[in-house]
């Protein structure tokens, strides 16, 4: 299967996010770039959502729990027609609708605001429970960061989702290996992460989070096992696709200068 459009979308939203964070002098570009393919596959190929009726009752629900990745999320919503592209240039500006952490207030297509870590998965559990109770077959997807898994609230939900057999719930971990102050393995090691989820009663799979085919495959046959929630642990690279941003803590905080922006966009445009 060829995913030209998905690949193009990933490039487009990377470029939007770079421009937005540069323009607003905002942080978290590295966290945006690591999940470009994940968002692109979800919005291009997987999620059953309609931009013309964003509140359609039977839509799939997507929650970006790592709310600091807002820029690229707004970008994918703009590319898919949920919000006007003109809004993107207002990102994090005074009186903008688009705050630097995900805001759902008056923004079509966003289910829930986020920004403080560890909130998305519990909400997703509630949505999954409601869907099951109402005998609806839509699915709930929640995208988490790796550092976010330090939050105990997630582990309450991981217990809960397995206990209640929330097979309509899929968590995706953007495992870029870097959190606020350094490497995940040095700050609060998550490994063996797959085994932990499995021990809690989830189905778990580990994929290359930049390989569109692998992402698509993992998201196409859900749930992986009956009566179990699924976690897709996506190995990613922070700052992916911009050589001087890749795997670098400082791009959790820095925003690109105009020269850096030009260089970054040029690199992305050259990628296959």
């Amino acid at each position: 299967m060829i995913f030209n459009n998905t690949s193009i979308l990933a490039k487009q939203i990377r470029i939007h996010a770079l421009k937005m964070t540069s323009n607003a002098k905002a942080s978290h570009i590295g966290s945006c770039l690591s999940m470009a393919e994940l968002l692109a596959v979800l919005y291009q190929d997987i999620l059953r959502v309609k931009c013309e009726t964003p509140d359609w009752e039977d839509r799939d629900r997507f929650i970006l729990s790592k709310g600091h990745g807002a820029a690229i999320y707004y970008a994918v919503l703009a590319e898919k027609g949920f919000i006007p592209k003109e809004w993107l240039s207002t990102y994090a500006e005074n009186d903008s609708k688009l705050s630097a952490h995900v805001n759902s207030y008056n923004i079509p297509g966003i289910e829930v605001s986020s920004g403080s870590l560890g909130h998305g998965l519990p909400i997703a559990c509630g949505m999954a429970l409601a869907a099951k109770a109402s005998k609806k077959n839509y699915k709930i997807y929640v995208l988490l960061s790796d550092g976010e898994l330090d939050e105990g609230s997630n582990w309450e939900s991981i217990l809960f989702a397995a206990h209640h057999k929330l097979s309509n719930l899929t968590a995706i971990v953007d495992y870029n290996k870097i959190q606020g102050f350094g490497d995940v393995k040095d700050i609060l090691n998550l490994e063996p992460l797959e085994d932990k989820f499995k021990a809690f009663g989830w189905s778990a799979v580990r994929i290359d989070g930049h390989n569109i085919q692998e992402i698509h495959n993992s998201l196409s046959e859900l749930p992986m096992e009956n009566d179990r929630p699924t976690v897709i642990i996506a190995d990613t690279i922070k700052g992916k696709s911009v050589s001087f941003m890749e795997d670098s803590l400082k791009w959790h905080y820095r925003s690109p200068s105009s020269d850096e922006l030009k260089k970054a966009i040029s690199e992305i445009e050259k990628t296959q």
Binding site: V112, G118, H119, L121, P122, I123, A124, C125, G126, M127, A128, L129, A130, G152, S153, E156, S157, L159, F160
Partner: peptide, 10 residues
Amino acid sequence: QNMMGVAAGL
């Protein structure tokens, strides 16, 4: 924490 998140999701 989960209870309140679940309540929000419901």
